[in-house]
Design a protein around this nucleic acid. Structure first.
Lengths: 216, 216
DNA sequence: CGGCATCCGTGACGATACTG
DNA sequence: CAGTATCGTCACGGATGCCG
């Protein structure tokens, strides 16, 4: 809850009391990729000032969204991690991503880009796949890599590449945007040389197949 | 988009650029109940200052979320109405309501209450009903009334009572909260005298029946 | 070097008063 | 009724400094 509460007996207003402040939901987006350190967060949230980031993390800890854990005994390094209450914000971020996706049609020169920012939009389209497969799907973009964890219909993502993956995608940001938007199918992207799918697992075959990543 | 953009090539950041400002999503919540005038909005958004409300409406009009329409020729009265782009924010509000619902467990004496603020949480639980029935469902609380429009799986809500309804619910705010949270079934609420369902239509029977408004 | 705290300029916010 | 004008306060963003 921010300094200024809406003071309304309304579920939406209560939610906005907790996560309506500037940067808060973007911090959740970062922490959904796994535990991160202060410096990592600051690097992947271009534009946030140091004091605002520290202040938000403190508020989120107080509100039970985030826990702070020392990385090494005696060291000053902390890892910030979402609580289960914080992870439950994924549907909120997914809804926001679905609504804001079309606004990615114009890419401004001032825009920062990180690979894992495409994880949530992609997850929305991979949900049917997650119901039938489990495994690790790595996604490589020129800007970096992230990987998706599929198991029992559950989906999660982590930042960075991974040593072993059931399937790997290689593509650029615009292709990733088009796949997530449903304006491009994986088959068409492969045929156009914009997407490479590697791996000889069932998951890799499923990603290549016509059932996944179809046009919306 | 606010004066301060996040400048991130990310669907979530783009969405927050458009609707992340204070009060914006609550204005959407109000306008989802149908076209409203400035004074109506101001009355149902306790705490918002007049200039901020006017400023938000201007920004939302510029961003294509809202249209302004003169009510009478020559009169100064305008009606603000959501565009289809604005109405597509309903899933975002539904996700926020689902996440923020548990926070309604503590009702603070400073909290304002409006009946139609329960519409979105209730709609989430009535979605299966909307797939099978069409009609108008009025909900009366001590604080006021609203009604839900069901047709072909679509759900919408309007503020205020309605002349004719297929079914009417009468209950208090806490019962409504419990029904929306899934901690109370309609059958139990009727048995406890906390809920009255009137109407002799199929919709009324369905609301009374065990299939709708069950425990979560 | 990571993790903030402090200072400062700008702008957003909230309350009140006022106007066509 | 439907906003605009004014003003004090606070939040934000940028830069810098401190301290283990």
């Amino acid at each position: 809850m921010p300094r200024r509460s809406y003071d309304q007996y309304c579920a939406i207003a209560r939610a906005l009391d907790a996560i309506g402040d500037r940067w808060t939901l973007l911090i959740v987006r970062e922490l959904l990729a796994g535990p991160r350190r202060y410096t990592d967060l600051h690097a992947d949230l271009p534009g946030v000032s140091t004091d605002v980031l520290a202040s938000r993390l403190r508020e989120m800890e107080r509100d039970g969204l985030v826990t702070r854990r020392p990385l090494a005994a005696g060291g000053a390094a902390n890892a910030y991690e979402l609580t289960s209450h914080g992870r439950e914000l994924l549907p909120v971020l997914a809804a926001l991503a679905a609504w804001g996706g079309p606004a990615l049609d114009d890419r401004r020169p001032t825009d920062a880009v990180r690979a894992h920012w495409f994880a949530i939009p992609l997850m929305a389209r991979l949900r049917p796949l997650a119901a039938e497969h489990r495994g690790v799907l790595e996604v490589r973009l020129p800007e970096g890599a992230f990987h998706l964890l599929l198991s029992d219909g559950q989906l999660a993502y982590r930042d960075g590449p991974v040593e072993w993956a059931d399937a790997r995608l290689a593509l650029d940001a615009d292709t990733c945007r088009a796949l997530a938007a449903g304006t491009l199918t994986a088959e068409d992207a492969v045929a156009a040389g914009r997407l490479a799918v590697t791996g000889d697992t069932a998951l890799a075959d499923a990603v290549r197949g016509p059932a996944a990543l179809t046009r919306s």
